[in-house]
Write a protein that binds this DNA or RNA. Structure first.
Lengths: 126, 126
DNA sequence: CTTGACTCTCACATCGGTGTGAGGGTTGAG
DNA sequence: CTCAACCCTCACACCGATGTGAGAGTCAAG
């Protein structure tokens, strides 16, 4: 598929797809006319990228962790340098901390909401 | 305490504490000399703010949800407008989505790491 | 052939969070 | 008194993610 379709299916502006490519997060083949060609996998990949960006990870880190993820477990074992592994552990722990923080605050919001609802319920609106 | 101590205890540059104040996330009393005075609660509050920022929430949203959180459940029930409640639900769901994404990717990193470790273990380094 | 929808590259703009420094007041220890 | 270590405000700079638009090529439908 071409960039327009990918943009629609991932709900992502063209501009950002090109940006992600520039940052090395996705790579697109080119048709003879110079147009980018994407495949089905790219849809999930872009969605994943956007999710991680939204969760506060910078492209630099996403680029490092993406190759180690959701792959048919074949590659990426030779070039796993100690520094790389350390980075991965560090980011994994950082993500755990983010999850902890988000969960705590989300639950607090939920609790607040249900409290409010309880206060409102006995008093019918009309 | 003054800004320096808060900065040290929250591991946050002065600049940002002033920025958070400017954005309405914290509010500091002022001593007669104009110096900001903080209390113990502000330590946790700043840490919480930083956690949320790191998890991708903008100050604008943090400002909205903070008053509904970790409070002695007393206030903030009259001014809970329907729009406000809708915002809260929306952000809560967004946070849930972030948690889902982070968890999935963190676990994938963990899996990768343990796979690598398993490959390395049987082969002593020396 | 023409037109409109799509694509390309390039470049400048914006926005939020953060860094940095200038210029100046306050305060406590020596 | 003086000096160091704080604090203040203000303002400009940076960086990463994103918006926007100009200028030009491609291509299918009419």
């Amino acid at each position: 598929m071409r960039i327009g379709e990918l943009a629609k299916r991932t709900n992502t502006p063209h501009r950002l797809l090109r940006y992600y490519e520039e940052q090395g997060l996705i790579l697109a083949e080119r048709g003879p006319n110079g147009y980018r060609r994407y495949n089905e996998n790219d849809v999930d990949r872009v969605i994943q990228i956007r999710g991680l960006l939204d969760a506060g990870l910078p492209t630099r880190i996403i680029k490092q962790i993406l190759p180690c993820l959701n792959k048919p477990r074949n590659i990426f074992f030779k070039d796993a340098t100690p520094e790389m592994l350390a980075t991965l552990r560090f980011e994994r722990d950082r993500m755990t901390e983010r999850i902890r923080c988000l969960t705590k605050n989300r639950d607090a919001i939920g609790e607040y909401l249900s409290t409010v609802e309880k206060c409102r319920a006995p008093e019918p609106t009309s």
